[in-house]
Amino acid sequence: MKISSRGASVLMAAALLGLAGCAGGGDDNEAAPPAAPETSAMPESSAMPTAGESSAAAGSVDLKTANSSLGEIVVDGKGMTVYYFTKDEKDSGVSNCTGDCIVAWPPVLTESDSPKVDGVTAEIGTIETPEGKKQVTIDGMPVYYWQKDTKPGDVTGQNVNEVWYVVAPDGTMIR
């Protein structure tokens, strides 16, 4: 079947109107979600990386510092807070967070043997996860995200079960 360019334009316009109708579809009283602030450190989605994702994009820092309600803390390159798990042993080379724990507390991963930092004065390294990935360590302790931190600056994992704590730039555990 042959369609004129005018007919094709009409069909395209109708299709776009149909798609636009699918996008709205809610109560006119609902407020649109707020736009995320623009910053080069923000992730495309403000959600925390999953256990299989690297914490920082190539060429950016893996860890940096940020001011929070708990003072100056260590965050990943996207601004997501990182935590220590007190059941880990310093310099053991392994994480004690496994099974359901790793679902709630994904490891901070990197692609590099020498993660890049900005403002973090503690010793930074890596350990190998059971899946063969590189988990970032601060002063010999693995670091993690908290699944309930949904945006940069969240520190909702602080003191969870009295075993999870944010990290200061010098590597001390903020209790």
Rank of each mutant, 00 (worst) to 15 (best):
K87W: 07
Y83N: 02
G25D: 08
W105P: 01
E162A: 10
T39H: 13
R175G: 10
I3E: 11
P37I: 15
P169F: 06
V117H: 01
A168R: 08
E44I: 12
V160D: 02
T86H: 14
I73E: 06
V163P: 04
F85Q: 12
A8V: 14
S45C: 08
E30H: 03
G119R: 06
V163A: 15
R6W: 09
P142M: 03
Y145S: 01
L17N: 05
K87I: 05
D170K: 14
K116L: 09
V136H: 04
E128Q: 10
D27P: 00
V143N: 03
V75C: 12
A31G: 12
A51N: 07
A56K: 01
N96F: 08
E111Y: 04
E53N: 04
L11W: 00
A104E: 10
G93C: 06
V74L: 11
I124D: 05
T39V: 04
V103S: 08
V167R: 02
G125D: 02
A8N: 13
P49I: 13
T50Y: 01
E131C: 04
A14V: 15
N159Y: 02
G7I: 00
D100N: 11
G71E: 09
I73K: 07
K133S: 12
P33H: 02
M173V: 14
S5R: 11
T39Y: 12
G125E: 01
A47W: 04
N159L: 01
A14S: 14
T86N: 15
P49S: 15
F85I: 12
P130Q: 08
S114W: 01
I138A: 09
S54M: 15
C101G: 11
A31D: 10
E72R: 10
C97L: 06
G7T: 02
A31F: 00
A47H: 10
A168K: 12
E30S: 08
K2L: 05
D88K: 04
S55L: 11
P33N: 05
G26K: 07
Q158A: 00
C22R: 10
S60Q: 13
V166G: 05
L16N: 03
A15S: 15
S69F: 07
T86P: 01
F85D: 15
I3Y: 13
M80F: 10
M42W: 09
K116G: 00
G24Y: 11
E72L: 07
G21Q: 11
Y83P: 01
S95M: 10
K134Q: 13
V94L: 02
G21V: 12
N159T: 02
